[in-house]
């Protein structure tokens, strides 16, 4: 680790996929932000790699897509909806909870998630 942390961080899914996204985008998630906090100095902060054991590659991909989407549109009023396949909704909800990212919550159509669960 150099003195100034790298601009990009790597997120790893439980099944071994790696996603490299901007640090600022990643830190929208409270969990990831704390994980990377240099003053706490956990191993993730040192390596810049966050292994998110509980998330599958597919979900993490969607999460990363959201994080980048959020980063890109954060200062705009009118933004296009993000496309979320219904079958991913429930798992994404859980991921959002886990990642402490309330914004992500708001993007997920909950009825769809619940409907899918009932099926």
């Amino acid at each position: 680790m150099s003195s100034s942390p790298s601009e990009y961080v790597t997120l790893l899914s439980g099944d071994g996929f790696e996603f490299v996204i901007p640090r600022s985008a990643a830190c929208v998630s409270g969990t990831i932000r704390r994980m990377l906090d240099t003053s706490n100095n956990f191993s993730e902060a040192i390596s810049g790699r966050c292994v998110l054991e509980d998330l599958s590659g597919i979900v993490l991909e969607k999460v990363c897509e959201y994080l980048c989407y959020n980063e890109k549109n954060k200062d705009q009023n009118v933004v296009p909806d993000m496309e979320i396949p219904p079958e991913l909704c429930l798992e994404l909800l859980m991921a959002a909870d886990y990642l402490d990212s309330t914004l992500l919550f708001s993007c997920i159509p909950c009825q769809k998630a619940l409907a899918y669960k009932d099926e």
Partner: peptide
């Protein structure tokens, strides 16, 4: 702390 994984604890 540096030897610990935040993610694991979390």
């Amino acid at each position: 702390a540096s030897s610990l994984s935040f993610e694991e604890l979390y």
